[in-house]
Amino acid sequence: MNRDRTKMLLGYLLTFLIIITLNFFIPRLMPGDPFTSLSSEEGDITVIYSEEQIERYKRYYGMDRPIAEQYIGYLKNLLKGNLGYSIYYNQEVVSILKNRVPWTVAIVICSLIISSFLGTILGSISAWFRNSKLDKILYISMVFISEVPAFLMGILLLFFMAGRWGLFPLSGGMSMFTQYSTKCEVILDILHHAILPVMTLSIAKLGEFYLISRSSMLSVMSKDYMKTARGKGLKSRRILFRHGLKNSILPVITRIFLSLGSIFGQAVLIENIFNYPGIGTLMRQGVMVRDYVLIQGIFLFVAITVLTMNFIADLIYKKLDSRVR
């Protein structure tokens, strides 16, 4: 038992080290550098540098030194919890992240909850009424929406629900330049802005959870214990949700945590569609201006999140399935 745990922790540590290393090298392998960028985006104050200044800043940020030396320096700083100083924003990366991360995490978590919950319920019902009309309709529509790219879905929603019908704001995380009288209004405004991005992300993930839940429930339904439950004369609701779902949910839960990686990817695109102030828009910005330090910070954050979630998935799986304990 203890040995297993040590093995697992070592595994995570190794993965982490590899990620840090990749994280350091990938931005530096991209063409261009932070100081030749000329574009600047709305609201942010940027500077255009002269040759002389670039030389100076390169020296200042240590970019004139050999890459191995830079790498060691990077590791040293990481140990101190210092993610560096954004070249473009002229601000600590940690504090930029602190401002942006909650927005992204909020929409990601909300849409994961919504899509996994709905997907599981629909998948289970579909499996329960296998080969019926309901099952067929659900199956086809779910396969269809899971094939529609998230950004396309986002643009469609934006176009109709915000643009044409004006139900939701067009962009941003909250209304600019408004006075709120109560805290409640702030929250409502934030929710109002979050609905479309969350909806887009949820729809993008729904098909995946539906399909997993359906196939998992189908295999559970062929098990002997489901026959036992039917033989015991229990109500269908109890057989489906207590006997069936408790078994079929295991792969769904694993998938929730495993899909965190991909959902961050989708969040990046969707945030850019809705101009949502999360790390997605931040990352785009960072990439555009080759802000190595910022990109590294974001990548590191995402990597740590995904690793942590995997770890939690392991723990929860053990808790749910008494056989793995």
């Binding site: 002997d224 214990y225 033989g231 015991k232 004369g233 207590r242 006997h243 078994n247």
Partner: peptide, 24 residues
């Protein structure tokens, strides 16, 4: 039929690893 199942007629199912629900 549920009124007859188990209350009136019950089965000792054939013993297999999966005959009881593994998570209950």
């Amino acid at each position: 039929r549920n009124m007859y199942r188990w209350g009136e007629i019950a089965v000792v199912f054939q013993n297999s690893l999966d005959v009881l629900n593994p998570v209950l």
